[in-house]
């Protein structure tokens, strides 16, 4: 437990130190990479609540990531074109305010998680994986064929959205925003895992029959986990869109779902900092291996195979040792 805490601190500190050094040595590209790690880690923190704590193998988290992205894209595109989002039943204008966009992203991905969860959580195992995948694909094809917001070409946003008191176009300032949000999500995730809900969720993963026999309904517990999980991943989607200043249907693609899952598995399923370690490793590999070889994803596949076969606890599990502490 102590070793894992030290390791968590190293990752938290490292993710802060790298962009600071890059800032001092004037390497904005590295800051952008670190920002990407923070955002993708945030998406993984969301998935890790469903997957790691709840054992829910969702291959549809791109749905929430994409909804968060499009929440940003739709609001900001109306703001930049000075058009109203809707005129009925009342007028809604777009916005360039990150805070409002985040609230909308959280609410809309949460609503989607409730609906998708309520339908897919009636199944389990391979069926659950397939249904979540199907929902993701439905939204993917919907985004492709919806011409109002760019369709297949996606939707560029020319200026990054604003945050009171900060210049979000400055890479280090935008990084700070994402880093703080990641920190808050990790704090929430840590508290969740030790709470009443966390106890019930982890018990449901291991023995739902027993949970029911002591008076709690596994379905309700799982749906709550799916809701929280989807909202966090949705928020990451909004930030990711803001990082790229571009939204496209690929955010909804099943490859995106797969990548988010890869972060969690690489880092360590159910480990608090697993998604951070996984996303960092993924981006580093993409950067290094991608520089060496166009087929870097083949090498990534080999690494993933190695992790699954020989290092079940992922990066963090391997470095810390087998035991997950329960205090």
């Amino acid at each position: 437990m102590l070793r894992e805490r030290i390791l968590n601190f190293v990752f938290a500190f490292g993710l802060l130190a790298v962009p600071l050094i890059a800032y001092v040595s004037d390497a904005p590209f590295v800051i952008t990479l670190a920002t990407k790690v923070a955002i993708l880690a945030l998406a993984g923190v969301g998935l890790n609540i469903a997957l790691g704590l709840g054992g829910l193998i969702s291959l549809g988290h791109a749905a929430f990531f994409g909804i968060g992205g499009y929440a940003m894209g739709i609001l900001a595109s109306h703001a930049q074109s000075y058009t109203l989002l809707t005129t009925w039943p009342f007028e809604i204008a777009g916005t360039k305010s990150m805070l409002i966009i985040w609230v909308v992203a959280l609410a809309s991905s949460g609503l989607a998680a409730l609906i998708i969860g309520a339908l897919s959580l009636r199944t389990s195992g391979a069926y659950f994986i397939m249904i979540t995948l199907a929902f993701g694909q439905m939204l993917f094809f919907f985004a492709i064929s919806w011409p109002a917001y760019g369709g297949e070409d996606g939707l560029p946003i020319y200026l990054r959205n604003g945050f009171p008191g900060l210049n979000t176009l400055d890479p280090i300032q935008f990084f700070t925003i994402t880093y703080v949000i990641l920190g808050l999500a990790l704090f929430l995730s840590s508290r969740l895992s030790k709470s009443r809900f966390g106890l019930a969720l982890q018990a449901t993963r291991q023995n739902p029959e027993r949970v029911e026999a002591v008076g709690m309904r596994p379905f309700n517990i799982r749906l709550t986990a799916f809701l929280i999980s989807g909202m966090i991943t949705g928020l990451a989607g909004a930030l990711f869109a803001d990082l790229n200043r571009f939204v496209s249907p690929s955010m909804f693609s099943w490859q995106t779902s797969g990548e988010i899952m890869v972060f969690v598995i690489l880092g360590g399923v159910g480990r608090l900092y697993g998604p951070v370690a996984g996303a960092a490793l993924f981006i580093l590999l993409e950067h290094w291996l991608g520089g060496i070889n166009d087929y870097w994803q083949f090498l990534l596949g080999l690494i993933l195979l190695g992790v699954v076969l020989f290092a079940r606890g992922g990066l963090i599990g391997t470095l810390v040792g087998r035991e997950v502490a329960h205090d």
Binding site: R191, L192, K194, S195, L199, I221
Partner: peptide
């Protein structure tokens, strides 16, 4: 079971 922040143990 709807307690989310306080440690149950």
């Amino acid at each position: 079971w709807m307690g989310f922040l306080r440690p149950v143990m």
